[in-house]
């Protein structure tokens, strides 16, 4: 009886540790994008991207608030929020997906791994399937993750007036850099 009790207690503890080890997160993810056009280059940065990565299932969730992006020019930031991304209506952008080659990654040992991921990217209230590749660098229980992928402005129903259409790239390169740490609740 006592043994059974101990077994249950230990399994609960082990299960909990297992879960705690399986998840990684960040709240200071760096998300940036770059638009290259003839007249001017535009880049914007956000240092408050959030992410949860489940190392057991490979599931990946990212979220970023549109109003958190900082531009070099205040006017661009204003147009981006009010006219293009309409951040009052669609305050956040999310990615929900999966690492598809999880078997190639050893989360318990230090090393650098090339990963592939796919999932749903939501920007401006529009969701599209995306897939791309990135790098996971495991170093003493923290993971430095980086990835970049192209976002076609038209796919997300972002309307850009004809007068400035040449100033903004049709495909914007989005870059994600995350320092993930073990997730404790």
């Amino acid at each position: 009886m006592k043994n059974l009790f101990l077994t249950i207690v230990f399994s609960v503890i082990i299960i909990n540790i297992g879960f705690a080890q399986g998840k990684y997160f960040t709240r200071t993810g760096h998300i940036s994008f770059f638009s290259e056009a003839a007249l001017e280059n535009i880049d914007a940065h956000n240092n408050q991207g959030t992410c949860i990565l489940d190392s057991e299932s490979g599931e990946l969730a990212l979220s970023v608030l549109i109003k958190g992006f900082e531009f070099e020019k205040a006017l661009m930031q204003e147009h981006f929020n009010e006219n293009y991304l309409e951040s009052h209506k669609f305050p956040k952008s999310t990615f929900k997906g999966k690492i598809t080659n999880l078997d190639d990654v050893n989360f318990d040992g230090n090393g650098k791994y090339n990963v592939k991921f796919e999932g749903d990217l939501t920007i401006h209230g529009e969701t599209n399937a995306v897939s791309s590749a990135g790098i996971l660098e495991v170093a003493d229980n923290t993971i430095n993750a980086s990835a970049s992928f192209p976002v076609t402005v038209k796919d997300y129903k972002i309307k850009i007036p004809k007068t400035v259409i040449d100033n903004i790239a049709k495909v914007v390169e989005v870059k994600v850099e995350l320092k993930l740490e073990p997730y404790k609740r």
């Binding site: 709240r27 408050q48 959030t50 949860i52 979220s63 109003k67 958190g68």
Partner: peptide, 14 residues
């Protein structure tokens, strides 16, 4: 005030 992130349930300021 930037807004509320529901993934981590946190409020963001910049």
């Amino acid at each position: 005030c930037v807004g509320f992130d529901d993934l981590l349930q946190e409020l963001q300021f910049k």
